[in-house]
Design a protein around this nucleic acid. Structure first.
Lengths: 151, 151
DNA sequence: TGCAAATGGTTTCAGATGAAACTATAACGT
DNA sequence: ACGTTATAGTTTCATCTGAAACCATTTGCA
């Protein structure tokens, strides 16, 4: 008789991470989509530009962990919607200089507090200890991944 | 002068979860794809069937947090590859009865230990305390999400 | 200086994915 | 028994996404 390995999917860390993350992201995505016609990728670009206005698409990609194709597309749509403006860098004509328009800032100022509220609501399920540990653990895994990819 | 909200994307929990989860999943996906011609969705189906052989597609969907369309497609491909067999339930002819073939078991027995190894490698970045807290935190958030969706 | 390689960014193509429509069967209420 | 409603599963269509090809510009170096 053959005995097989036993793997309980529900207990499997990558699976749990994935399901949790997707559930959270999708809930947020649906709201942004319906209220602001804004996809998650677009929102990430906005969020980064709200913090670092005037950077190039390349830097947006780095700071959002998105690839350059995704950034290119998100920016194209954001420009079409008049939320982002694209210029060309003086010192390097390949590079773009991305800035938020008035309209872009307006959305940003609406969505940012909403995002923080989502985060608070999620964290509210955890007590103070758990929140601290989670933050620390994510930071560690994050660093580990960065290292991994750096090779 | 207008002061805008400040939202540091890198510190934003849903974002961190998403990036971490995607990085982990993609690393695993690439390996399964190249070594076994197996997508993550297909792997999840295999994993559940390895544990609960003979269940219906509907139950696979529940246990994998995938929607029924995704399950249907994964099963179709797994059948084409001769890894899964589909029968019809006696008591309800709508329901399928999904079982692993010899070939399916063979893959399962290869992939399962590999999956566990991936998990170990990820957890190795954390000390024992952190591992315990992570498990507990994910469990709590998981329950919270379930509740959320149940409404 | 001039040419090969690298970089920033966009486009194209092919496969993945989700929502809604659809088919078949079963359950429910009268 | 019979029509309505619900459920299991598949198919279709439109959108999303990633990989690779591509263009323009810059960098590195002989």
């Amino acid at each position: 008789m053959t005995v097989h390995h036993v793997l309980e999917l529900e207990q499997f860390l990558p699976y749990r991470l994935s399901v949790l993350s997707n559930t959270v992201s999708q809930a947020i995505a649906r709201e942004y989509e319906s209220r602001f016609a804004l996809s998650i990728t677009q929102w990430r670009v906005l969020a980064v530009l709200g913090r670092y206005d005037g950077i190039a698409a390349r830097e947006v990609a780095q700071r959002t962990a998105m690839d350059k194709v995704a950034v290119s597309r998100a920016v194209a749509q954001l420009m079409k919607d008049g939320r982002v403006r694209r210029g060309t860098a003086e010192h390097d004509k390949r590079q773009s200089v991305l800035t938020l328009t008035e309209k872009g800032w307006k959305i940003y100022d609406e969505v940012a507090p909403l995002a923080l509220e989502h985060e608070r609501r999620l964290l509210a399920y955890l007590d103070a200890d758990e929140q601290r540990w989670l933050s620390r653990i994510l930071e560690k895994l994050w660093q580990a991944e960065l290292q991994e990819l750096g090779r």
